[in-house]
Amino acid sequence: MKARVTVTLKSGILDPQGKAIEGALKSLGISGVASVRQGKVFDIEMEGGDPATAEAALKEAADKLLANTVIENYRVEIV
């Protein structure tokens, strides 16, 4: 089964990479960009067929490894 873990900075946390991307988009002439926030995406293939077990395991992985939960949020999706 396939899963996706998306990690993003919590609101209120400064995102210098997002600001740099925002500036680059504007310098390329792309209009209408109000703000940019960057994040990470992990596409993970899991063995087994129980989505609830896979989701629980991935939440544990995100808490312990994939995300810094002090400054980041994460979302686990079974796809």
Rank of each mutant, 00 (worst) to 15 (best):
I71W: 08
K19T: 11
R37Q: 13
N73A: 08
L58C: 04
V7K: 00
K2H: 12
K40P: 09
I21G: 09
G23H: 11
F42R: 00
I13W: 03
I30R: 04
L66K: 01
L28D: 05
V7A: 03
S11R: 11
S27C: 01
V70E: 12
I21Q: 03
F42P: 01
D50L: 13
V41P: 04
A20Q: 08
D63F: 08
E60D: 15
K19Y: 06
A24K: 07
L66H: 01
N68W: 05
V7E: 07
L9H: 08
L66P: 04
E72I: 04
A52R: 15
L9A: 08
S35G: 13
L58P: 03
L65R: 06
R37M: 12
P51G: 10
N73R: 03
V7R: 00
K2N: 14
A56P: 06
I21W: 01
L58M: 09
L66R: 00
G29P: 03
V5T: 01
N68E: 07
D43W: 00
A24T: 10
T8K: 12
A62D: 04
T8H: 04
V7G: 02
E22Y: 14
R37L: 13
D63C: 09
G18H: 08
E60W: 13
A54E: 08
K10P: 07
A61I: 08
G48P: 01
S11P: 06
N68P: 08
G23F: 05
K19N: 15
A54F: 11
G18I: 10
V41I: 15
D50M: 08
S27I: 03
K64H: 13
G49Q: 07
G23T: 07
A62Y: 03
D43T: 15
E55V: 12
A62K: 02
D63N: 13
G49R: 13
L14R: 12
G49H: 14
M46D: 07
D63L: 15
D43P: 00
R37G: 13
S11E: 14
S35C: 12
T6E: 13
V5W: 00
A54R: 01
A62Q: 03
V33C: 05
A67E: 04
K26C: 05
P51Y: 10
S31I: 09
E60F: 05
P16T: 04
E22P: 03
E47R: 14
V41E: 14
L58Y: 02
L25Q: 02
L28P: 02
D50C: 07
A24S: 12
L65H: 06
A20N: 07
K64Q: 11
E55A: 15
V36C: 05
A67F: 05
D50S: 11
L65P: 04
L25S: 02
L58K: 01
I21C: 11
T6I: 09
A52N: 06
V33G: 02
G39K: 03
K40S: 10
L58T: 02
D63I: 04
L28Q: 05
V7H: 01
K2F: 07
G18W: 09
V70F: 08
A62H: 00
E47T: 15
V70D: 06
V36F: 04
L58E: 01
K64D: 14
G18K: 01
A54C: 13
A52E: 13
K40L: 11
G29M: 02
E47S: 14
G18Y: 06
E60G: 12
L65K: 10
